[in-house]
Write a protein that binds this DNA or RNA. Structure first.
Lengths: 353, 353
DNA sequence: CGCTTCGTTGGAAGCGGTTCCATATCGGGG
DNA sequence: CCCCGATATGGAACCGCTTCCAACGAAGCG
C-alpha cells in the first residue's frame, strides 16, 4: 500500500506538495499538480485515515449514539442522519447502546479526543450532570429526542403531542380515556412517554374529567406488554372508550388485544398511537405524526454547520411540528347496541378477563 | 486532554511502561502498574484512537456496508451485526449505500489501509470483478445475502426458498401461481428475487404446470408498486389463485390491493411473502422465514474469529436455514360461494376499517 | 541592474500511540 | 564474590499525514 512518500518520489516532488494537492490547498503549479495526480492514480494511493486524523486532530467522523435499534422510530432517525451525512466528508460511527453500562461508556467516549468530531445522541436523555459534562466538551453535541438545557437539541413537544391526541379524543366525545406508556423509571432516563401523559392529563383536567388512576398503565415498551396492559385496562368496571398508546408499536399491541377479545375498533374502542411509523399506515392507525427522519436529518445538519463554520452550537431546541393523523381506529365513543345491530352483525363483547 | 506522555510524567515512569499497562502487556511490576493506573485515573486519560490505529496499523473498526436502510430486512441484519460487535473491541463504521456511485466508492474503501480491519457487505452483490478485487485484499470480508465464490459469505438458499413457497401453494391445490419480484436489472446486482423466481419455476415445472408469463410481474421493491402489479395480475382472464411476493413488504402491497378490490384472503386469493419481518406477523402473513438478525450476527462472528485468530477466512458459504411459516393468508384455492358461507373464513387484517 | 515580493516548493517537526532494543536491577548458583 | 539470566523499565524510532518555515527563482519596480 502506497504512502504519501511513495507518491512524492514517483512524482519527483516533496511530500508537502503531495499533501497540498490532496487537500486542494493553495499554490501548486499546474504542471506539478498534474504530475502528482498521475502518481496518485498510478500507485492507487489513498491517504490513511488514521494518519490524517492524528495529524489534523480531527477524525472526520460523527458519532451516532442510540439505544433501541429495534424501534422503528430510532431507525428512522438514524436514517435521517445517514441521509444528511451521505454527501459530507464525514463517516458515521454507530455507537449502539443496549445496557445502562454501555450508555455510560458511550457517553464518556463522546469526549474522546479524535474518535469523533461531533456527536448525535438519539433518544438517550442525559441527566443534568451528564449534560453539563457534555456541554463542557469541545466536541459539538446535538441531542435528538430529549429535553436538555445546556445543549443543542432537536425535539418535538411531547406534552403538546399528548394534549393533541387527548383533545382529539375528547372532541370525538370520549370521556374515559386510558393511557399506555413506558415504565417511568426507564433505565435510560426517557421522558417522552411521561411527557405525553402529562399532556393527556392536562387536557383531561381542562375538560374537567377527574383523574382515575386505573386508566393509566405502564410497562416495557413492546407490543406484547401493551396487549396485556390493554386486557387489564378493559377488565375494570367502567372500561375506557379510548386508549392512547405512547407509541404506535404499543398501539398495535392494543389493536391485537382488541381483536383477540372481539372488541370492534373504532366502534367499541378508539385507539390512537404516537410516531406514525410505517406500520401505522398499514393498520389505518390514528396517530400523532412525528417527523422522525427529519429529526435525524436536521440534527446532523446542525452539527455539520457547526463543524463547517467552526462556530459552536447554540444550546437551542429546534422544535419540529407534530400533526395529528386521523385514520380508521378512532371514532365517537361506544354506540348503543341497537345502533350497532343495525350496522352489521352482532358480536358478543368478550369481557376481558 | 492528557496524552500518554502526561501520564508517564505524572506517574514518574516512561511512556513505554504506560503503554504496557494500557495494553495489559507483559512484565510490569505491581507497584508500577498501580502508580500508572492512578495517574490514568487522575488525568482522566484516554488513549487516542487515531494514534493507536496509526501505530498498530489497525483501526479496531469493522465496516458495515449496506444499501436500502429503508428495508426492514437490511436493518435486521445490521442489528445482528451490532449485537455481535457490542461485546468486542471493535467499533462499527456504517457505510450506507444509496446510489450506484456510492456503491462503487464504498467498495473501494474497503481496501483502504487503516479505515477498517474487516468488512461486512450486506445485500450488495459484488460483480465477479469486484469479488476478485475484494478477495485480493488483506482485509477480511464477509458477504451477507449474496452468492459469491471467492469470499466468505452468509446466505440462505433463495432458490430453495422459492421452491418451498411454491410447493406449499401447490400442496394446497393451487395451479395458477403468480409472482411479484424486483426488477431484474437492479442497479445493485441483486439476485435474490430472481433466485426465488427460479425456485418457483422449478417447482412449477416439476408439477407439470406450463409457464405463463402473464403470471410474473416485476417492479421496484416497494409496497405501492406491488399493489399496482397485483391489480394487473388479477385483471387477466384467468387470474392467479395465489400470489408469491419476493418480500413481505411486497406481499403487504398485495394484501392491500386485495383489500381494495374486495377480494377475500385467503378464500379467493392466497398470499405468501418472504423474509418474515415483524410486520408479517402482525398481518398474519404466511411467509418464508429468513434468519435476518442471525445472518448479521453470524457474519460478524466469522469476521471477528478471523481477526482474532489471524487466520484468513475460508471462501465458504454459511447457509442459514429457511422455514415456511404458515399463517392466515394462505389456504386452498377459491372455494365455491356456498362453501365459503358455511366456513366463515379468517380475515387477514386487524379489523380496523 | 539591484532589491523586493510573491508564488512554489522541500522537508523537518509534530500528532500520540506501539514496539523494540538497550539498560538497569535483582536473586541465585558456582 | 562474581557471573548470568530473568524481569522491569526508559525512550528512540516509527506509523503516515499536515503544517509551518526556510529557500529558491522569477517577475516587478525604482
Amino acid at each position: 500500500m502506497a504512502t504519501i512518500k511513495d507518491v512524492a518520489e514517483y512524482a519527483g516532488v516533496g511530500i508537502g506538495t503531495v499533501s497540498r494537492v490532496l487537500n486542494g490547498a493553495a499554490s501548486v503549479s499546474d504542471g506539478t499538480r498534474r504530475k502528482v495526480v498521475a502518481a496518485i492514480r498510478a500507485l492507487e494511493y489513498r491517504p490513511s485515515p488514521a494518519a490524517r486524523a492524528l495529524s489534523r486532530r480531527r477524525a472526520s467522523t460523527i458519532a451516532v449514539t442510540a439505544p433501541f435499534l429495534t424501534r422503528p422510530s430510532v431507525v428512522e432517525r438514524v436514517r435521517g442522519v445517514v441521509d444528511a451525512l451521505s454527501g459530507s466528508e464525514y463517516d458515521l460511527w454507530l455507537a449502539a447502546v443496549e445496557t445502562p453500562e454501555q450508555r455510560l461508556r458511550r457517553l464518556a467516549e463522546v469526549g474522546q479526543r479524535d474518535r469523533a468530531d461531533g456527536a448525535l445522541l438519539i433518544s438517550l436523555a442525559p441527566t443534568p450532570q451528564e449534560e453539563a459534562d457534555l456541554a463542557a466538551l469541545e466536541t459539538p453535541v446535538v441531542v435528538v429526542d430529549s429535553k436538555v438545557s445546556l445543549l443543542a437539541s432537536v425535539i418535538t413537544d411531547d406534552v403538546a403531542g399528548g394534549r393533541m391526541a387527548a383533545e382529539y379524543l375528547l372532541e370525538l366525545g370520549h370521556r374515559r380515556i386510558a393511557y399506555i406508556g413506558d415504565e417511568f423509571d426507564a433505565r435510560f432516563h426517557f421522558t417522552s412517554s411521561a411527557d405525553r401523559l402529562t399532556g393527556l392529563r392536562a387536557a383531561l383536567a381542562d375538560a374537567d374529567i377527574e383523574y382515575d388512576d386505573r386508566m393509566f398503565a405502564h410497562g416495557p415498551h413492546d407490543r406484547a406488554t401493551a396487549t396485556l396492559l390493554t386486557q387489564s385496562l378493559l377488565a375494570v368496571r367502567n372500561p375506557p372508550t379510548a386508549i392512547f398508546a405512547s407509541s404506535d408499536t404499543q398501539a398495535i399491541g392494543v389493536l391485537e388485544a382488541a381483536r383477540a377479545a372481539g372488541i370492534r375498533v373504532p366502534d367499541e374502542l378508539s385507539v390512537i398511537g404516537f410516531d406514525d411509523i410505517e406500520t401505522a399506515e398499514l393498520f389505518g392507525l390514528t396517530t400523532v405524526h412525528q417527523p422522525l427522519f427529519e429529526s435525524g436529518r436536521v440534527a446532523a445538519e446542525l452539527l455539520l454547520d457547526s463543524l463547517g463554520s467552526q462556530r459552536p452550537l447554540d444550546a437551542d431546541a429546534t422544535r419540529l411540528p407534530l400533526t395529528l393523523v386521523p385514520r380508521r381506529t378512532t371514532g365517537p365513543p361506544r354506540r348503543t347496541t341497537a345502533q350497532r345491530r343495525s350496522v352489521s352483525g352482532t358480536r358478543p363483547r368478550a369481557s376481558a378477563s
